[in-house]
Structures are given as C-alpha cells and as structure tokens.
Design a binder for these strands. Sequence first.
DNA 1: TTGAAAGCGGTACCAG
DNA 2: CTGGTACCGCTTTCAA
Lengths: 340, 340
Amino acid sequence: MKHENITIKDIARALNLSYSTVSRALKDSYKISEATRQLVKEYAEAHHYRPNLMAQSLKNQKSRCIGVVLCSIPNSFFAEVISGIESIAYSKDYLLIITQNLESYEREVKNLENLTWRSVDGLLVSLSTETKDIGHFQRLHEQGLPIVFFDRVTDAIPTHQVITDNTGGAYKATRHLIERGYKRIATITSSPYLSITRERLAGYEQALAEHNIPVNENYIQYCAHGGMIIEETEAALNALLQLPEPPDAVLTASDRITVGSYSLIQKRGLTIPNDIAVAGFSNFQSPELFNPPLTTVRQNAFDMGKLATELLLQQIESKRPVDTFKKLVLPAELIVRSST
Amino acid sequence: MKHENITIKDIARALNLSYSTVSRALKDSYKISEATRQLVKEYAEAHHYRPNLMAQSLKNQKSRCIGVVLCSIPNSFFAEVISGIESIAYSKDYLLIITQNLESYEREVKNLENLTWRSVDGLLVSLSTETKDIGHFQRLHEQGLPIVFFDRVTDAIPTHQVITDNTGGAYKATRHLIERGYKRIATITSSPYLSITRERLAGYEQALAEHNIPVNENYIQYCAHGGMIIEETEAALNALLQLPEPPDAVLTASDRITVGSYSLIQKRGLTIPNDIAVAGFSNFQSPELFNPPLTTVRQNAFDMGKLATELLLQQIESKRPVDTFKKLVLPAELIVRSST
DNA sequence: TTGAAAGCGGTACCAG
DNA sequence: CTGGTACCGCTTTCAA
C-alpha cells in the first residue's frame, strides 16, 4: 500500500524487454542500442521510476549512508558543521546517520558499533574529549572503511583531515591580549587528549614566546570534558583566581568553556574586561549581544562540514584506494569586541 | 573485505541446520525446540552475529529509518529537538535522516520526495514558514505513512502532534509586560501560515483583552520567513518605530526574530528596556549573558523531540492502524530578566 | 519441529 | 546488443 512504486520488472513487462536490459539501459551501460535506451528512459521517467535503494544496497554492499560521530548536536559549532555536512550529503543522495556521545568514550564506541552494523559507507569523526585510545577507529580503517576526521583529529590514522587553524587563532587572540596591555594571560582549555587543545595551546605559547613572556604552568587549566560539565569550568576558573597573582586576561578554548566562564565570572561580581578580560573560541550566533560584547575566535564550521563530506564522498566513490591524504586547514577569524 | 560479518547461512552450515530454522530460532518464533533455539542463540552470540539490515529492509519493506523535516539544523531550538529525537531513535535502533529546507516550500517538497524514496518508516515534521498547501504530506498520510507533527503543526491531517503551550507562553509574557507598566505592547511574529504564529498571537491578544487593552493591528508585524532573513525583522521593526505612537515593549515570537530585533534595536541606539522593552521566545543557551539579560519564553525542545519520536515509533510499530491521535502540549516557561 | 524454496528489487555474468 | 539466471541476506509460506 505504502509503496506502490514502479520496479524494473514492471518496466520490463510493459516494454517486453528483459530485466537486465532495462537495468542496463537505465545505467547508461555501454552496449545498449540508443533506441531501447530512449524507450526505457522515457517510460521510467513517465512513470516516476526510482530504483529501490534497499535492493541496491543489498546487491552492491553499499548503503549510501555516512555516519557522523561527534559529541553534541546542539553545540552551536557542531550544529553548524552538521548543516554543512547535510548540504553536501543531501545533494549527492547520501543519507546521514548522526550520533552524539556527550563526550563519553564508552558511548563513542557503542555508537560506532551501531554505525558499522548499519554498514555505513564512510565516517565523519570528531573525537570525544575522553578518547585516548582510538583502536576502534583503527580497526575500521584497516578494514578499508573511509574515515575523515574533522576538528578533533588524530594523526595516528592516515586519513583526510579538516581542521581550523587553531594554532593561528589562539596565537592571534593571545597576541591581541598582549598588545592590549594584559600582562598575566591565562587559558582555560579542553581535554589534553584532543588535537585542538594541543594546537590552541601551541598558538598561545607562541604568542607569549614572541613577546618574551614566560609560560606559567599555573595559568593553563584543562577541562576534561571540554566544559560540558559546568563544574569543570568553575574549578578551572577558581584555580586561576585563587593564584597569588591571578590572571588579568583569559583565553577560553571552546564554546562551552567560553560561555561558562563568562557566566561564572559575572556571577562572582567581576567586571569584564576591567577585572579580567575574556577572549574565546566560540561559534555562538550573537556574541556581539553579550554584556560586554565578546571577543571571539570564530571557526568556519559550515565549510568544515562541507569540505569533510566532499573529501569523504570522493574517497568512497574513488575506484582505486586512496593513499595520499589531505589535511585541510581553515582560517580562524579573530573578532575583537569589548570584552578584551 | 569490509564486512566479513557472519550471516544466517554461516550459522546454519556450522550447526547443520537449515537457514529457516536459524532465522526462526533467532526471532524466538514459537514452533522451535528449546534446544535448537539455545544452540543457535549461543553460536550467534559467540560469533557476534548481527542481522544484515539491508537484507531485512528489502524483505520486510521497512527501513528502520525515520525522516525529519525541519527548517534549519543549527537553529538552537531545532538543534535541541534533534538531540531529543536522536536520544530515542538511537536507543531503539532507528536511523535518522535529517533534512532542512531553510524555510523554502520548494525545498520542503523536494526533501520529502527524497525521504519517501529512501522509504522511511515514518516522518517527524515541523512545517516551513512558506508552507500553505500541505498536499504533499496529505498524500503520504493517505498512503498510510505515519507522520508526527511537532512545533509547527497542521490540524488538516489527523496525526499525533507535539507542541508547546504557545498561547500560554505568549499570554504570560504579555501579561508580564502589562504588569510591568508597559502601555503600548507590540509583537513581531512569524509567518501567518504557521500554527505557532496563530497560537502565540492568541495568547498575546488574550492578555491584552483581560486588561481591557484594545488590539492595535499596527502593533502586529509578521516576518514571512520567521526572521531567517534579517531584512524582514528590520522591516517589521521599522514599521513599529515609525508609528505615531511607537510601542514601548515588544514580544518577539521566534528565536531569530528575538535575536535579530535585539541586535537591530541596539544598533539604532535605543536602550532596552528604557526606550523599548523586549521579551521573546528563545531557546538560546545563554540569554542571561545578553546586554541586558533577555526575558525569554523558553520551550522544552529536547522533550519535544523525545515525545514526538516516541509517538511516531509507537505508531510505526503498532500492529493495527492507529486512529486516535494525541496532541501533547508542553509547558512554556517565562524567565524574567532585565530586558523588560 | 524442521527443511526447501520462492521472492523482496536490483546487478552482473555468461550465452547467444 | 539482448535475454537468462544466479545471487546479495533474510523472511515466510508450504510440505514433510
């Protein structure tokens, strides 16, 4: 009842052809007469023929599904990435299976099992903050499953990567703070396992080094779950403010840490930027509406999703195995507002 | 290479049984001896047997996919809804196909075609602002495809619905404005085609009526695309501010309209709430960080996604056709902050 | 209780 | 260039 869709057999019967001829005509296979091809195509068109994807999948061992592995869908950065992924996937008739792990290694593994069960044709992955061991991805990669990492990547698996110029972004923000005259610049960053943490820290340290400011280890605070748990951000902030020489500026290295810190600082009655300046990585839609307007390092999340998907589909559809991999680095944009 | 998964045939061969026996044993079919059932199940377990979903789909004409139709993935409200949908769908091994139409009727229709081609088992739908004619959904519904509408619903199709108490939310916000002493309360709302627009308008008018304030049609402005296009919000705001008696408060009826208005009002150099107060429907994560902190009507987006999905799956898996439909109404929460 | 076989809708090989 | 047929993995009648 639900799908009284026309099938190849219907066409064959109607046109007095064999199934195989119809199938070939539809796929523009080389050895087929122009006449039959025309005939079949016209009939198919007229009757709204759409190949049954389940049958195709079963036969071809391809599902035209791509799996997405990330920590949180409503996170503004990842929501934008998904939007970018959707734009490409959908235009190429690929289906998206989106999973979120809420920064849990266990859920990441479980989601991955589900995705492979669904026999996805490829994977777009941004690692969870808890993920130290990437064996689960390694195994799939060795079995030949195309994987593209984005944002939170790993170099342990040879694949395409799409990331932001995190080092450059952190560098620009830190240099900006230095130039504004701040002397004691701290940073609250994400899990030390993550590539983005290392990269952003590198930019932070590079800017300090260029201005002959020694790195003070006390000024570097980690949030094991990227600020998903507000208590983490609070602990980090407390640790900073309780120092004998508390920082006069802080670079926050993720969306949730940025917003969490902003809120916590204000709750403590401190004034931004007079008591402490804040610059943060954030893809919030309206940081200019914040009080005070927030200086942000913005990532191009939509394009990241698009590019990662393009690379993945390219690899999925490539005839011969891909063995040279690209690392795409998107620019990070520093937007100075009055919080610094 | 990629999927050296064990199949039913492998089990049958190993255990010297027929395919059909194995299949039945695995599904706890009634006529099967306890002994064989045990044997098969243990072997399957031990060898990590997972049924091939593509084969199952083809045979059962069920894809275990549900399609999601909405306007914009990164919109904070919908992103949260998706997160709720994911939480249920994934726990029940359903796959999610998410489409976004950017408030375009044409894209909505096109996406719907793609979804039905994918033979989804059911649909979760929130209409686009442009959608006046719902024939495309009607046809599918008549063919027996389960559909659940959420947020932006239609009464023209008998199905489950999950919505927010929009009328109550708008009523509470408007009453709050009246009680605060504002006299000329305007509203900028979404497309007149949408259920949420009508419902929110009803609440607005109810509050005015209860306080014997006549409705001034000039104080009601529509944004045809729900504020997705900033120019719409700007035009609406201009229309209000150019009135001989411009409003001293405004109720904004969607996330994007709220944020857009906030930004535009500030750009004009007006002070909130002194020059004009703002209360708005919004699921932004941190309206308390705004300048000034924003009074919001908040919806329970995550639960909306969860409930809608539960209703849909219930219907999909129900043996006999469902003919009584629920309309679930979630509470709207007014959170007063200093913008009013 | 179990087995054999048809079929879901395509694809691709082999013959002709 | 076209037709016949086996098969992808699973479900489900029909017989035994």
